[in-house]
Design a protein around this nucleic acid. Structure first.
Lengths: 155, 155
DNA sequence: CAAGATTGAGGAGTCAATCTTA
DNA sequence: TAAGATTGACTCCTCAATCTTG
């Protein structure tokens, strides 16, 4: 309903109605998507999406990642990463490790407990993403989306 | 860089690498997009993107919209709308109007000052959206995106 | 009681300032 | 001095509780 209203209202913007629909459509669809997946993770594991993404990246990098590297990978500021890591450390899923060659760096690595926890969390994540995103689109749609987001990322 | 790392790392997720790239690619590209447009609006008019969108919808509805309607159109909670409206009222761009037939409803309408302010604000918005989004894609990409977001919105 | 709007509390995220080490 | 991490103060946003009116 809201979406139809939004799209049906060809505003006075400098943007053409088609361009405006592309922008607001993306904005709103993606907002709804993130809300759904975040809510599923929160409900089943009390972890927000950003904590999941951090944990997931650390699972793929057992040697650990510096806070700033982690921030680049998940697109979060160092300060936010630092606080999410605090939370994950409190849960025992992750640990901070000293760097021998440069004491300024704080490596973050997954713990055994964290590694054990990943499959269940990932199942929740994957189910939500499939249900609200993947399964609603064709393979062709997804390919197009990847092409588009790659173009946008090349800035 | 960050994007390439992200995409190049074919995680252990239940999601296929292609599906994961579509999800995270969309997540990250859209996050960056919103940041850019929001920053432009903030820098040039001291208004966040959500205030712009409210103002813009009200410009297209001179008779005014109820707070809850406005929330549906811009995809914000009623409480958030209420506070953004506070800010816009303080700036004199918008006003609250009583509803004669149902005193529970608070209509929000644009003021003359608000109407006068729209063109400059919209120019900033449109320029930012073009620069970071529209101009980076082909017409075909945008059509595909609209098709995709429509499918996603039909939930 | 239910619906619309507002307020309070709190989560998620940022930037700027600070602390430590190179 | 500058780089990496953390902390403080702030914004944006939501949910739950409250107030008012139907």
């Amino acid at each position: 309903m809201a979406t139809i209203d939004t799209n049906a209202c060809p505003t006075d913007s400098d943007l053409s109605p088609a361009d405006a629909e592309a922008w607001f459509g993306l904005l709103h669809a993606q907002g709804a998507l993130v809300r759904e997946v975040d809510a599923a993770l929160l409900a089943e594991h009390r972890l927000p999406l950003s904590a999941y993404e951090l944990l997931f990246r650390l699972g793929a990098n057992p040697e650990g990642l510096a806070v700033s590297e982690l921030g680049r990978v998940v697109m979060l500021s160092p300060s936010r990463v630092s606080r999410v890591v605090d939370d994950l450390v409190a849960l025992g899923l992750v640990e901070r490790r000293r760097c021998d060659t440069d004491a300024r760096i704080s490596y973050v690595g997954i713990t055994d407990k964290g590694r054990d926890a990943i499959p269940a969390i990932d199942a929740t994540f994957a189910a939500a993403v499939r249900r609200h995103f993947i399964d609603r689109l064709t393979r062709r749609d997804l390919d197009n989306l990847v092409k588009i987001t790659r173009k946008l990322a090349a800035s």
